[in-house]
């Protein structure tokens, strides 16, 4: 129960931050990516604001074996750069640029994002359903 309460609070604070920062507005995100147009640097301030506290919080987290609720702290992933990391990030970036939405803001804006926002969320969920199949095909191709 406690776990779900803190999960809800984290999600709520994340959503509030996305709203306050302007990241639920696709024109701000696309303005950042549009280096050949009317460039908008807001996203760099958002990322900076988020990364700075997290830099220090990771230092605390990595000194502990378990979290406050007893879950083992997430292990540092192997610094392995597979093809899926690169292909996936390129595909994600293309979609992010086209619509100006990434998964967090897509969910945070559900209540006021209208039909377009709901359609994006459904398409994104559909993409997540087929992704394991896509991954299998890519891996088979890479192994061949």
């Amino acid at each position: 129960m406690k776990r779900n309460v803190f999960s809800f609070i984290s999600g709520g604070l994340f959503g509030a931050g996305l709203l306050v920062s302007g990241m639920v507005d696709t024109t701000k995100v696309q303005g950042w990516l549009d280096v050949f147009g009317d460039w908008d640097p807001t996203l760099a301030f958002v990322l900076g604001g988020a990364v700075i506290p997290m830099f220090f919080i990771w230092r605390i987290a990595e000194r502990r074996a378990v979290s406050a609720l007893g879950t083992p702290m997430p292990a540092r992933p192997e610094p392995k750069l597979g093809h899926n990391l690169v292909i996936g990030s390129v595909l994600f970036g293309m979609g992010w640029g086209l619509a100006g939405l990434c998964p967090g803001p897509a969910m945070a804006s559900l209540s006021f994002g209208g039909v377009g926002g709901a359609v994006f969320l459904l398409a994104m969920a559909a993409g997540m359903v087929v992704a394991p199949g896509v991954r299998l095909r890519i891996d088979r191709h890479a192994a061949a």
Partner: peptide, 27 residues
């Protein structure tokens, strides 16, 4: 917009920190 971006960013970082330190999960 930049200032609100930074403030919102701090909230996002705070959320990620809370989720990590309390729940032990990556946000």
């Amino acid at each position: 917009d930049w200032i609100w971006g930074f403030v919102g960013g701090l909230m996002i970082g705070g959320a990620a920190g809370l989720f990590l330190l309390v729940n032990g999960r990556i946000m």
